[in-house]
Nucleic acid binder design. Structure first.
Lengths: 209, 209
DNA sequence: ACCTGAACACCGTTCAAGT
DNA sequence: ACCTGAACACCGTTCAAGT
């Protein structure tokens, strides 16, 4: 028999299952079947299901292109965070894994390092740099997810049904905002929030220095 | 027999299992057993597993106390976001569910409405208000999760092992930042990022008006 | 040594039968 | 009508046996 695989083959087969059939379709058994072997063979490449999921996260991270640093730290933070957001959004079904599993791959470290490096030139204190790093990371992953599962996700009719008719008068601010949500692209929506955060980081850096 | 439960009983029993034994321990069967009945009885209260998970998210949301609005929108955003963060962090094992499942409970809408209401007084455009809302929501949930599963989560030794020895020289910025992470409380860490974002929102609001 | 089938202890859910 | 046991089609993983 001697069927042998590289870790990359395993990882991309797993990501393909998630992309094509959803997160629930990924199992040790379905992956093994997709590779034409028995379930137990997978345990030669991965410690357990958790390890397989980390492989999927690494495969998503591998799709992120780390931008070259410039002499403008704010532009670098923007470019790095945008690259992460695009890379994550390219695999929507994998997002729960990206949010939940530790990102410990080489690309994952590389992009995080680029982000911290850019933030290091913002004139922040050490603690401020850590806060800003967590905030950008949280904003990227959190708003990628919020756009998919937040109160305004799904089509307009669904949103209206959920908020408008069910509790329209009780929650007037949400109801009003839900109409805005139909006319803004998710790219612009994310970009707006990111620019606000970067402006706030810049202000905090100026205050320290 | 006639064993009957309220939805609240189901929800808090489910949340208790998650809190005490972890997310993996929550199943239709374990929940039914905890309530002293058979698995099928649960289907009288919940459509499927997904519905049960939404019940857990609602139970977490119910623990959030929505702050009273003041005449300072920035203070209100800060208070609302902080209340969400504390409420979410009170149930760490449930966070993957909070991130992933739609928050559609009454308290969930109430806190979101309070947040949008406060942001409505920041002088933003409609699109800016939506961006700011998604950004704050993403920051709260995303950084709660990043603190638990990000590159600096776990104890210091574990972090060092993951980054320092494995790839210390390759990723110098992360390695340096990991030492900062040991001396900052998660509360202060989150608060710093939130204040940066609010400052950026304020700046965007001033620019428009 | 590396690989993998059989088996075990789970799981969510359908279906049909109970009251 | 509401409730729930038996059964089905899965799942991750241990164990032991193959090469």
């Amino acid at each position: 028999m001697r069927a042998r695989f590289t870790t990359d083959e395993i990882a991309s087969a797993a990501l393909r299952i998630v992309d094509e059939s959803g997160l629930a379709a990924l199992s040790m058994r379905s992956l093994a079947a997709a590779l034409g072997t028995g379930p137990m063979t997978m345990y030669n490449y991965v410690a357990d299901k958790e390890g397989l999921e980390e492989l999927v996260v690494a495969a998503v991270a591998a799709g992120i292109v780390v931008p070259e640093p410039s002499d403008d730290w704010a532009a670098d933070v923007h470019a790095t965070a945008s690259a992460m957001w695009r890379g994550v959004r390219a695999h929507p079904a994998a997002i729960p894994l990206v949010l939940t599993r530790r990102m410990a791959s080489a690309t994952g470290f590389a992009i995080a390092d680029a982000l911290v490096g850019a933030l290091g030139r913002a004139g922040l204190s050490d603690a401020g740099r850590l806060s800003a790093f967590h905030a950008v990371l949280g904003l990227v992953t959190g708003s990628a997810q919020a756009q998919l599962a937040g109160p305004f996700s799904g089509d307009a009719a669904e949103t209206a049904a959920r908020i408008g008719s069910a509790a329209g008068a009780q929650y007037p601010h949400i109801a009003a905002l839900s109409e805005v949500a139909t006319s803004v692209s998710v790219e612009d929506d994310f970009d707006g929030g990111l620019r606000m955060l970067i402006a706030g980081i810049a202000a905090a850096g100026s205050a320290v220095s």
